[in-house]
């Protein structure tokens, strides 16, 4: 309880200042599409933040910008006071579409980040092996991605991000392809790992139960052009245990989030998402 009360006082670790992102429309000559519109938020060190919002609203885009993979059109992201200029080795990303390297075995995929950082092969393989086992993939070390199911590939992608033991984990629907049982197991596993190492996590999901189970705070985004329209604090004690899912507060929170998300689905600041009709002629 004390831990929770102390949290708002902690200085922001990740700060998102007025992030706006526009993409060119599919057809030449059409106006730009504004995906993110002046997104503001800040995240404390060690906080687990979940992003929820309608499909196509810009959650993946926001993660990419926060990690420095793509630039924003307006605004900036700072981590620990420093403006993010590009990706860095101490931030891990789990991609929505797995993005495993097809020419690397599961083990080599997981060891990728360590390899970049010059960790010796003994240590690298040991770590990768342990993580794969933790993901329930022991025995699949030498399989190529093509030989693994979607859910297995997704867990390899998760292990790959965890392997570098990053300060910040950006996770884009990391359990989206898992069956219900494996999903619960992986949520427990993630909770254990994150609590043990006190990592900061930004996590995208469409699953409200998952959001409530994992999050300290849930940010709800609107339709495109997306803003964060609602923020829900989850005050369940840590570490989260499976039995909490049955608690009345858990159900209430879930219902509350669902209500908010439903509003977000309907919340359209402008009809269509196309604005800046003049921008295309300049760009």
């Amino acid at each position: 309880m004390e831990e929770r009360d102390a949290r708002p006082a902690a200085p922001p670790y990740i700060q998102v200042h007025g992030i706006t992102k526009r993409f060119p429309a599919a057809l030449k000559g059409q106006a730009l599409v504004t995906v993110l519109d002046q997104v503001e938020t800040s995240i404390a060190r060690g906080e687990f933040v979940v992003l929820i919002g309608p499909s196509g609203c810009g959650k993946s885009t926001l993660l990419r910008i926060m990690n420095g993979l793509i630039p924003a059109d307006e605004g900036r992201v700072t981590i620990d006071g420093a403006t993010v200029q590009g990706p860095a080795g101490d931030r891990g990303m789990v991609f929505q579409s797995f993005n495993l390297f097809p020419w690397r075995t599961a083990l080599q995929n997981v060891a990728f980040g360590l390899e970049l950082h010059g960790v010796g092969s003994q240590e690298r393989d040991g770590r990768a092996r342990r993580l794969l086992a933790a993901m329930g993939l022991g025995g699949f070390e030498n399989y190529y991605p093509r030989q693994l199911s979607g859910g297995m590939q997704q867990r390899v992608g998760l292990a790959r991000a965890l392997a570098i033991d990053p300060e910040i984990l950006f996770m884009d629907e990391p359990f989206g392809s898992l069956d219900a049982q494996t999903k619960l197991l992986m949520q427990d596993e993630l909770e254990t790992i994150v609590q043990r190492h006190k990592r900061t996590v930004v996590f995208v999901t469409h699953d409200m139960e998952e959001a409530v189970f994992l999050a300290d705070r849930i940010l709800i985004m609107s339709q495109r052009p997306a803003k964060i329209i609602e923020e829900v604090r989850v005050d369940l004690p840590r570490p989260r245990m499976d039995h909490m899912r049955a608690a009345p507060e858990f159900g209430e929170l879930k219902a509350h989030i669902w209500n908010q998300v439903r509003t977000a689905q309907e919340f359209r600041p402008t009809i269509g998402a196309v604005d800046h009709p003049t921008a295309a002629t300049h760009g």
Binding site: P87, D90, M93, F95, S97, N99, F101, F112, G113, L116
Partner: peptide, 11 residues
């Protein structure tokens, strides 16, 4: 996207 993935690991 694989290039982006590698970059995300600081390549």
């Amino acid at each position: 996207s694989l290039i982006e993935t590698a970059r995300s690991f600081g390549a």
